[in-house]
């Protein structure tokens, strides 16, 4: 148990930030865009309306940050949960790069889509 450099504090901050953002924003967004609009309970916002919403630079920056944080949150939890459920702590050398790599890729895709 000697001290050494570890990336865990930064990964934990991303995980926590993503957890807060996901908790505050995702349920209402999934409710509107994923459930109510497709089911026709509410009038689905037309494409022009969504484009208008995404027009301000600040909104697009915020959405990219939200998507990135949510993905890193998920990557962190999935990494540890898979290792615990399979009793496979040895998998970490493969699983950690895989999970955070996927989160990073997703974030880059989100940025490319939005800008």
């Amino acid at each position: 148990m000697r001290a050494r450099r570890t990336p865990e504090p930064y990964l934990w901050l991303l995980f926590s930030g993503g957890g807060v953002v996901a908790a505050l924003l995702l349920p209402v967004l999934v409710l509107i865009f994923g459930v109510l609009a497709p089911l026709g309970v509410i009038e689905p916002p037309p494409a022009a309306r969504v484009r208008a919403l995404l027009d301000p630079l600040l909104v697009r920056l915020a959405l990219a940050a939200v998507v990135g944080l949510c993905l890193f949150h998920a990557a962190h939890r999935i990494r540890f949960t898979v290792e615990e459920m399979t009793r496979g702590g040895r998998l970490d050398v493969v699983l950690a790069p895989l999970c955070y790599g996927a989160a990073l890729t997703g974030t880059v895709i989100a940025v490319l889509v939005l800008f």
Binding site: G18, A22, L26, L29, V30, F33, G34, A47, V50, R51, L54, L63, V66, V67, C70, L71, H73, A74, A75, H76, R77, I78, F80, T81, G106, I109, A110, V113, L114
Partner: peptide, 22 residues
């Protein structure tokens, strides 16, 4: 902990939505 799978899905869904609208 496994709710995080759906957190990732929701984020991806929002990106798909934004991509289509744009």
């Amino acid at each position: 902990e496994l709710t995080s799978v759906f957190v990732a899905w929701s984020a991806a869904y929002l990106v798909l939505l934004a991509r289509a609208a744009l």
